[in-house]
Design a binder for these strands. Structure first.
Lengths: 177, 177
DNA sequence: GCCATAAAGTAAGGCGCCTAATTACATGGC
DNA sequence: GCCATGTAATTAGGCGCCTTACTTTATGGC
């Protein structure tokens, strides 16, 4: 199973050995597994970032476009921020770039003039229509080496891991307000 | 299993439905699984980045320190770059920061004066000694909700996924020269 | 002695994200 | 009618990760 470097390719097991006596309460197998998981995680994310790049997008830009695609015809920046789980400032930056590329426009909202609705331009819609089949195929391919059964197992296990993350020191950030 | 947003919280299944006829060759279960995997991956990485931050480190800084810890007494920047799988420019930046914080020093190498060896300072060693137990424990905890058996299963499945990444368009970058 | 090669570092840039401060607008209460 | 308070969006600035392209410095073969 790929010799054991951390998710950044740093050898935890050797470091463990070096400190053996002191850290012998740690399960080496658990440690090694975690490293592998983190390493592969990083690789997957990088792979998708690259896929987006071939379409002139980035994960963030894609996420905004997809949110708009689903929540037609428009969303307020703050809604987008909530859905993506990032700050408004981050969304402002993404929107700026998307507007520069004509993928998205600002449509003024009737009553409350603080609120500005964002919607896809025809160009943006066309891009999403072109990107989705590629990205979705890559996603499906990601888990295609797994049987339906294995997939279920993996999800169950990831669920446990995720639950562990939340209960540990890791702060939760609520997506979907 | 957590309602289905992409690794950036964008609803792929709804997008699938919207394009049903056109994309019906895609397995919705595979797609949903991939999204979950990507989402949890991102969360895990973020959780560790935070853990490093509590020690004044970042994933990159930690990786350099760990590499030096294992490969005592010193490494050339280029070796570090190869081990981490990043460019030398990236390593230069990381080293700069670590030197500023006195965690690492430049020790001139005898014969070849182009080559500059980097090694941990006592402060750096002390920091790593303090950080490792915390990080390793978090790693072990990550997979502790899993039984030994489940862990093996997960690794096997991740192995398949990783193999898929390499064979797909995803360019490989060789760590360990 | 000269020059290709190699190591390290510099410069600039893109993406992901954040906090803090600011600007614009909306409102409820007096 | 007017203002304090609150809310939406944006700006400014910052840190981290990482890249490509270029420069500097030193080596070593010929």
């Amino acid at each position: 199973m790929v010799s054991d470097f951390s998710f950044r390719d740093t050898p935890a097991l050797e470091a463990l050995a070096r400190r053996g006596a002191r850290l012998d309460y740690l399960d080496p197998a658990a440690l090694a597994a975690a490293q592998d998981i983190l390493r592969v995680s990083k690789k997957m994310l990088a792979a998708f970032a690259e896929a987006f790049a071939t379409h002139g997008l980035s994960p963030g830009r894609y996420a905004v476009l997809m949110a708009l695609d689903v929540q037609r015809p428009s969303m307020a920046p703050s809604e987008i921020a909530d859905r993506l789980g990032v700050t408004r400032a981050t969304v402002t930056g993404l929107i700026d770039g998307l507007m520069r590329d004509n993928l998205v426009v600002h449509v003024p909202e009737g009553s409350d003039r603080r609120r500005k609705a964002i919607s896809l331009t025809p160009v943006g819609e066309a891009l999403i229509d072109a990107v989705v089949p590629d990205i979705f195929k890559r996603m499906a391919d990601l888990t295609s080496p797994l049987s339906a059964d294995e997939r279920r197992t993996t999800l169950r296990l990831l669920g446990k891991i995720e639950a562990g993350l939340s209960t540990a020191g890791v702060k939760e950030k609520e997506p979907n307000a």
